[in-house]
Simulated scan of single mutants.
Amino acid sequence: MNEKQFALKDVVEMKKPHPCGENRWRIIRMGMDIRIKCLGCEHSVLMPRREFIKKMRKVIELSEE
């Protein structure tokens, strides 16, 4: 199985868009849970890593680090 690669401060695309209409999210916390922030309305969501990996489609922008 191909493991998805992502890092802190990357911008990712999720399978379903946020209710505000934006589909791009920035990863702001990583650990057992991952917190992502919507780039449209600044709403943040905390979800388990396993659920995040399942719902993430692709990495759009890599972090500068």
Rank of each mutant, 00 (worst) to 15 (best):
R24A: 03
W25R: 02
I27E: 00
R57K: 13
K4H: 06
F52H: 01
V59A: 08
M1G: 14
M14R: 12
D33M: 14
R24E: 01
M56C: 07
E51G: 08
L46E: 13
E61I: 09
E51H: 13
I36C: 07
C20P: 06
H18K: 04
C41L: 03
C41I: 06
F6R: 00
K55V: 04
H43I: 07
R50D: 08
C20A: 11
K4A: 09
L62Q: 14
L62C: 12
G40Q: 05
L46M: 12
V45G: 08
I27M: 00
R35E: 03
P17C: 07
L39G: 03
K4E: 09
I60C: 04
R50K: 05
I53K: 08
F6H: 06
R29E: 13
L39T: 10
C38D: 03
D33A: 14
K37M: 08
K37E: 06
C41Y: 05
E22H: 13
K54C: 08
P17Q: 06
C38S: 07
G31W: 14
E13D: 09
I28Y: 00
K15M: 09
G31Y: 12
E64L: 14
N23D: 10
M14T: 09
E3K: 11
K4D: 07
K4P: 01
R49Q: 15
R24H: 01
C38K: 01
I36Q: 05
R50F: 06
V11E: 08
R29M: 14
H18S: 01
R29H: 12
K15W: 10
I27Y: 02
I60M: 05
I28E: 04
P48F: 09
I60R: 02
I36K: 04
V45T: 14
I60G: 02
R57M: 12
Q5F: 10
F6L: 05
F6M: 02
G31P: 11
M32K: 14
C38E: 02
G40D: 06
A7F: 01
L62A: 15
I34P: 00
N2Y: 10
K4M: 01
P19Q: 10
F52Q: 01
E64P: 13
F52N: 04
